[in-house]
């Protein structure tokens, strides 16, 4: 029996290694490190255009990491490009939603732009405060704990009295994790977009002659609910209207 347990433990470990984010391969870390350091130097020496170019090159190379987005946001902010700054900060926020530095700078940039950050019901806000990757890791962890509990339940009937509350607790946690993933999925299907040019007029229809409903400044964060041609249907506060897709940058 102990040999069987050893085998099960090894299998579980192997499966946990396969959790999202576990995959990594050979990367040109030295080159990325050098570009990052060069961009930081340019920032310190107030060469913002160069800093933006370098950090943006890292993003374009697939290094969509919190420090890269955050520093890119700082460079955009210092360069007076508030829409781009808010976009970069928001990208960083999606990766690390509880990072106080990101919250501070995002709030600061939003205040400078004269916009209010989107507010959500308390439960949704809490679920968005945990990143999608974290929810997935939690769901995977609870899934394997539930599986391990089931294995123990099968192999050791005498422990069933002790294990009895565990399946319910794990099922509840698994459901909660799935709900968190579902909320993030909603944000993927109807992503947030940052208005990159302002003030932009939200129109009542997807054509130039449509009636303007409201004017929103650069950096405003809206939700995109649909797309038609070169137009995006957006929702801001309680208003639904249309904006040219060209003035929007989707997050994440």
């Amino acid at each position: 029996m102990s040999r069987c347990l050893h085998r099960a433990g090894f299998s579980l470990l192997a499966l946990l290694i396969l959790l999202p984010g576990g995959a990594s391969g050979a990367v040109d870390a030295a080159r990325y490190q050098a570009v990052f350091a060069k961009a930081s130097r340019a920032y310190d020496e107030n060469r913002m255009e160069e800093a933006i170019r370098d950090w943006q090159s890292l993003v374009d190379a697939g290094q969509r990491l919190t420090p890269v987005w955050f520093n890119l946001g700082n460079a955009y902010y210092r360069n007076g490009q508030l829409g781009n700054a808010i976009h970069a900060y928001r990208q960083a926020w999606y990766l690390s939603p509880r990072d106080p530095d990101i919250r501070a700078n995002l709030g600061f940039a939003a205040q400078t732009a004269g916009i209010a950050l989107p507010s959500h019901p308390a439960l949704v806000a809490w679920m968005l405060d945990i990143s999608r990757r974290e929810w997935l890791q939690a769901a995977s962890l609870f899934f394997w704990l539930a599986t391990a509990t089931a294995v123990l339940w099968i192999l050791f009937p005498r422990f069933r009295a002790i294990l009895r509350p565990l399946p319910w607790a794990l099922a509840a946690l698994l459901l909660l994790s799935m709900a968190g993933l579902l909320v993030h999925q909603q944000w993927i299907q109807r992503p947030e977009c940052v208005v990159m040019e302002g003030p932009s007029s939200v129109l009542s229809g997807p054509f130039e002659a449509a009636t303007p409903l409201l004017s929103i400044p650069e950096g405003t964060i809206v939700r995109r609910t649909a797309q038609r041609g070169g137009w995006s249907e957006i929702r801001y506060d309680s208003t639904t209207g249309w904006l040219p897709s060209a003035v929007l940058a989707a997050v994440p």
């Binding site: 995959a23 990594s24 391969g25 050979a26 990367v27 040109d28 870390a29 990325y32 490190q33 990052f36 350091a37 930081s40 920032y43 190379a61 697939g62 290094q63 969509r64 990491l65 919190t66 420090p67 890269v68 955050f70 520093n71 700082n74 902010y77 210092r78 530095d101 501070a104 700078n105 600061f108 940039a109």
Partner: peptide, 18 residues
């Protein structure tokens, strides 16, 4: 207050091929 200063470089870089 002002914006928070830069973050240090990441310890691990992503594999673009992954």
């Amino acid at each position: 207050s002002d914006i928070v200063y830069l973050k240090p470089a990441p310890k691990h870089w992503k594999n673009p091929a992954a």
